[in-house]
Simulated scan of single mutants.
Amino acid sequence: MNWDDLKVFLAVARAESLSGAGRGLKVDPATVGRRIGRLEEELGAPLFAKSPQGYALTDAGQRLMGHAERAEQAMGAAVEELAGQAGALSGQIRIGAPDGCANYLLPQVCARIVQDNPDLEVQIVALPRVFNLSKREADMAIGVSPPNAGRLTVQKITDYKLHLAAHRDYLAQHPPIQSIDDLLGHPMIGYIPDMIFDKELDYLSESGVSRVSLASNSVSVQFNWVRQGSGIGIVHDFAIPSTTGLQKLLEDRISLTRSFYLIRHADDRRLDRMNRFAQSLAEGLRAEVARLEALC
């Protein structure tokens, strides 16, 4: 058994398809299938069961998975050691994040890290859902609540604030908002209720709002509605400086605090490169949240 075969095995296990694994490995699916067949023949056991849903690990595949992941970690550690740990960061690191963080914080934070490490390639995957790190959808993820399952490590990065807000042009054309009851006559902007993927994102129900006139699963879409004067919504304080004309409302009545968490594979704690990047990322996010919130 060689490391190249194990890499193919891991790719299929995580993608749950030959085509998905092939895209990641940059080889055609037929080649992936032949490599898996060769590995199964060598081990004398089927590693995957094919179904309409894709390739699922058999019992033998499940047992091999742990060994393959440990081999992957060992190879990564060896590469780091041979490359030297004290130099600049290099290679590719993919971060998964909810789109609020991905749009208004990560671009400038990651750009500064790459500026200091020119051989580093950072990829930001902005999706309004929880990332599956066990399938290597990302090397690390930003979450709004700590996970309670899986072989993961969790580090709290920072708290952040959210407030009710509207554009000044909208407010000039509508009756003043002096109490929560005054919100009843206004179009409210928020999440699609059945697409809220984390209870920490259920902002409006916590604020006593029961009906949403304009809804999206994307924070950026919600923010753009508020920015263009379509109604009233809960916005991140750190997003407000990215535009002009927004005004916070009922600050003494509705003020929410949430937190960002850095979520990583437990085994990646052994990798100096990942530790150094994680430290730079967390420090950068803390500083950027503080800077932007001071401006709004």
Rank of each mutant, 00 (worst) to 15 (best):
T153W: 00
A138W: 01
A60Q: 15
K7Y: 04
G66F: 01
G61W: 01
V221M: 14
T257Y: 13
W225G: 05
L184T: 04
V154M: 01
Q279N: 10
F277W: 10
D119G: 04
D252R: 13
S207E: 03
I196R: 01
V114G: 10
G76D: 09
Q53R: 15
L82C: 12
D252P: 12
D182F: 02
P52T: 05
R34K: 09
V289I: 14
P107N: 03
N132S: 13
R38L: 11
I232K: 08
P46E: 08
L152H: 01
D169L: 12
Q279H: 03
R211P: 03
Q85H: 09
H236P: 04
L256N: 13
A77I: 14
S216F: 00
D59G: 08
E137D: 14
H265K: 13
S280T: 02
I196D: 03
G143K: 00
H163P: 05
P46K: 11
G208I: 07
I180S: 12
L183S: 09
L47W: 00
I93W: 02
H163S: 14
L133E: 02
L201E: 00
G284L: 11
I254N: 03
A165V: 03
M188T: 10
F277S: 10
L25D: 15
Q173P: 04
Q108E: 13
